[in-house]
């Protein structure tokens, strides 16, 4: 291909009218050493395009077991896993060899595992140790009474209190509500009116108090 052909091809290239084959011809032309001086300005571009198309990655296909864990995780999020499958997930995330694509879930399963390992026994032992530790290091010199004598004294006190206040044990008479019973419609109306008047008075009092409080708050200089 002569220089004028390449120039024409380049014009087509800039106008995006070249075919893939023509673009390969351009790449091939610019990869050789004998390039027309006026075209050398484009050499770097086509060299770059060529080298970029050879970049590769060493990424390998994920391990089948890892993919199965992904499947299990999907089932887990959908709440379709059984206990055995959840145990498999927990066991996988408890290990040290967690795939990069799964690392983000590791903390969740670690927390779940550590929470499931909490035992009441440990807490009880810790508390016992905390309570008993000072007693071991610093023996108390205070006077102490045996527990059984305290129990006897408490019982005697209870019996004597009940003896001298025997009316506590006898049932109280019921309030004679019958004497407050309303006998006629007029009386019922009167009682209702009284009750409503009492309620209205209370409501007036509380609404006035709220108004006063609001006034005091709005007058407060701190809020202005």
């Amino acid at each position: 291909m002569n220089t004028s052909d390449i120039k024409a091809l380049l014009e087509k290239y800039w106008a995006c009218n070249t075919s893939i084959d023509e673009e390969l011809q351009l790449r091939s032309y610019f990869s050789q050493s004998d390039i027309a001086p006026e075209l050398t300005v484009y050499t770097s571009l086509f060299s770059l395009l060529r080298t970029q198309s050879n970049l590769s990655t060493s990424i390998t296909l994920p391990d089948t077991y890892v993919l199965e864990i992904h499947d299990l995780l999907d089932k887990y999020w959908d709440c379709n896993t059984d206990l055995n499958e959840e145990a498999t997930l927990k066991a996988y995330f408890a290990g040290n060899d967690i795939d990069k694509s799964l690392v983000q879930y590791a903390d969740l399963f670690k927390v779940l595992r550590s929470e499931s390992e909490l035992t009441a026994g440990n807490i009880a032992i810790e508390r016992t140790m905390k309570v008993s530790a000072p007693a071991v290091s610093k023996p108390s010199k205070a006077f102490s009474i045996p527990t059984k004598w305290i129990a006897v004294a408490a019982s005697l006190l209870l019996v004597s209190v009940l003896w001298f206040n025997s009316d506590i044990l006898t049932p109280q008479n019921d309030t004679a509500f019958a004497e407050y019973a309303v006998q006629s419609e007029e009386e019922a109306l009167e009682v209702t009116m009284e009750a409503l008047a009492f309620l209205s008075g209370k409501l007036d009092k509380s609404s006035n108090k709220i108004k006063n409080d609001i006034k005091r708050v709005s007058n407060a200089s701190l809020l202005k």
Binding site: S53, L55, T57, I59, P62, L67, H70, D71, K100, S101
Partner: peptide, 27 residues
């Protein structure tokens, strides 16, 4: 990988994307 590298601009990110693509294909 090359497309991912062109768009995200880092090898690490591009490899992560490819891993995600492969897992998507599996799923």
């Amino acid at each position: 990988y090359r497309l991912a590298l062109r768009i995200v601009g880092s090898v690490q990110e591009a490899e992560d994307v490819i891993q995600e693509v492969l897992i998507k294909v599996w799923k």
